[in-house]
């Protein structure tokens, strides 16, 4: 690959991210013990785990900033340790602890990063305009970044990670501080990139925000990978649903008659029960309506990820 210029980025993520047995310690502290991770191209993978589970450290290893103590890592077809340049050329990283050059304007920040990625000078201005438009910062383009709100800084950070059209995108807590509208837009941007072939990794400990974003989830805890779930499969599998009717008593009687195991009605008369996929939910609803139960709503309780996470911790107990 030519060191001087990137003519165009073809979004060739290679095999995306493949990490096996990654370990990283800081003195006596084992931040990452043994993690396995796959981030396939064309999909959004969530990295889920509690605070201090080693998510950020793993991302720093993938972003070529930290060398792993053990294990093998491939990002966009290159080893971050032996060929960090190739990895950097194809990878966008958005850190969680957010620092920005405070006195520079948004435009200057992106122009600086573009120059640092050695984009051809002629194309930088257009690329920066495009990115500012994408993250809705065009009207703040010439304001210094110190006047930006936290959410606006996050959006600038996303634009910064996208400057060189990376094929692999590493987002560390991207949605924190974002308002609902910005979250929806973030989801749109990330999904579009995945559709175009990028391998996207999103870390978070807020499960709800990953639910609509990710295709797969990798659960980590205490520096180890504990489970990998395909979220399409997870939503087809057994999960908890909430059903609410105007008459809680009639609902309970009907469920008992149908032979459904269910919990006790809550304060609002809602009842929780386990259903297997959407088909099961549809047949239950039609049965309840047939029995003249005044059903108000039937919906999955909590997100897919939340349930997967909870069922996972249940398995471990």
């Amino acid at each position: 690959m030519d060191y001087a210029l990137i003519e165009s980025n073809d979004l060739d993520a290679g095999t995306g991210v493949v990490a096996r047995g990654v370990r990283r310690t800081f003195g006596d502290v084992v931040a990452v013990d043994s993690m396995d991770l796959d981030v396939p191209p064309g999909r959004v993978t969530a990295l889920v785990g509690p605070n201090g589970s080693g998510k950020t450290t793993l991302l720093l290893v993938l972003a070529t900033l930290l060398a792993p103590d053990a294990g093998t890592v491939t990002v966009a077809g290159a080893d971050p340790r032996t060929d960090p340049w190739e990895v950097r050329r194809r990878t966008g990283w958005m850190p969680d602890a957010f620092g920005t050059w405070e006195t520079l304007t948004c435009r200057e920040v992106l122009e600086t990063v573009a120059a640092a990625y050695r984009l051809p000078r002629a194309g930088i201005r257009a690329r920066v305009d495009e990115l500012l438009e994408l993250v809705h910062l065009a009207d703040l383009a010439d304001r210094p970044t110190q006047v930006l709100s936290r959410g606006q800084k996050q959006r600038l950070g996303l634009a910064r990670a996208l400057v060189h059209s990376p094929a692999v995108l590493l987002l560390d807590e991207p949605a924190s501080g974002l308002d609902p509208r910005s979250r929806i837009e973030l989801r749109g941007i990330v999904r579009d990139l995945a559709t175009a072939g990028a391998a996207v990794l999103v870390s978070s400990h807020v499960l709800a925000e990953l639910d609509t974003l990710a295709d797969r989830a990798v659960f980590v805890s205490g520096g180890c990978t504990v489970s990998v779930r395909d979220l399409d499969v997870a939503s087809a599998g057994p999960r908890t649903w909430t059903v609410r009717a105007l008459d809680a008593g009639a609902l309970e009687r009907a469920l008992d008659a149908l032979g459904r195991v269910h919990g006790d009605p809550g304060v609002d008369g809602a009842v929780e029960l386990e259903l297997t996929g959407d088909d099961d939910a549809a047949s239950l609803l039609s049965a309840l309506v047939h029995d003249d139960v005044p059903v108000v709503s039937l919906r999955p309780s909590g997100g897919v990820l939340e349930q997967a996470y909870l069922s996972l911790t249940k398995e471990r107990q």
Partner: peptide, 13 residues
């Protein structure tokens, strides 16, 4: 400490 060094280090500089 301002968190901006890594931003440069992950580029092609």
């Amino acid at each position: 400490s301002a968190g901006v060094l890594a931003t440069l280090q992950t580029t092609l500089l």
